[in-house]
Design a protein around this nucleic acid. Sequence first.
DNA 1: GTAATTCCTAAACCTAACTTTAGCTCAAGA
DNA 2: TCTTGAGCTAAAGTTAGGTTTAGGAATTAC
Lengths: 151, 151
Amino acid sequence: MPASEGLSIGALARRTGLAVSAIRYYEAQGLISPWRNPGGQRRYQRADIRRLSFVMIAQQFGLTLPEIREVLAGLPDNRTPTPADWKKISQGLRAHLDQRIDTLLRLRDNLDGCIGCGCLSLPKCALYNPDDRAKAHGSGPRYLMGDAPEG
Amino acid sequence: MPASEGLSIGALARRTGLAVSAIRYYEAQGLISPWRNPGGQRRYQRADIRRLSFVMIAQQFGLTLPEIREVLAGLPDNRTPTPADWKKISQGLRAHLDQRIDTLLRLRDNLDGCIGCGCLSLPKCALYNPDDRAKAHGSGPRYLMGDAPEG
DNA sequence: GTAATTCCTAAACCTAACTTTAGCTCAAGA
DNA sequence: TCTTGAGCTAAAGTTAGGTTTAGGAATTAC
């Protein structure tokens, strides 16, 4: 057993499948907060395995790290989260997922319209919808189509 | 009217809503190929408006630029694409969209299972599925969970 | 007790998809 | 004609989400 109780970062990495560097990065982003042993090394609780697992799932669902941090803020910080706590924030994830699915379904309908007429007429297409944040990355403002009537 | 026929890059930018810099970038990525006027400036065809619109839509659907280039390769290069040509490649897009939607629906089912038991037990969750490439970016191997049984 | 691991920090590097900047040329209007 | 607005290229900067590297310090294994 280790000098001070708790998991080392390497052990946590093995348990979650994450790289050690990724775990440190998540800490820098405020997603996880280990304590330090007398020698200055990070020590984690067993509950942190679940916490990081949650992070990975949320990422699959397309949430950004800041968004995930928000969701995790719904957990109690004065005690180890219970299954009920996890259930609660997982339901928030579910809502997020539903929204993404709805968006894609709407895009699909719109695309069908475009395919139907063969004209690829943009104003009918989904791009007008400013709520569609399916666009993951890329920096700067890419304001979505003013018009492209093909004159 | 311009010295040599065709749209200037600025005009194309106005018609599509894209930034001039983005259009040049797409050219560097092989998504569009203007010709040059005697002064060395880019000139575009009207059909290029539609081409760029297609690029924007495909991006909304989550395709990367290399993937979009592949799809666009399905257009004829010896003549201006007809509505039928666009329809054909749009249907490829539709298949791609369907796949993304299926993936998310599957994720949702899995999440429901996790919420149901409240345990957030990872092996039951979606992350085991190596086909889920919903994960857009980030470099290097982030091998998805070996195990996290919370022992 | 010492060698081999593991961990630490800070800073640099990576990819995708662009934007910004610098310095210069082309084109269009009065 | 001359000025101003577009355009050109090449290179550097940006964001997200990490990884890699460098140079030490703490732990663990023998």
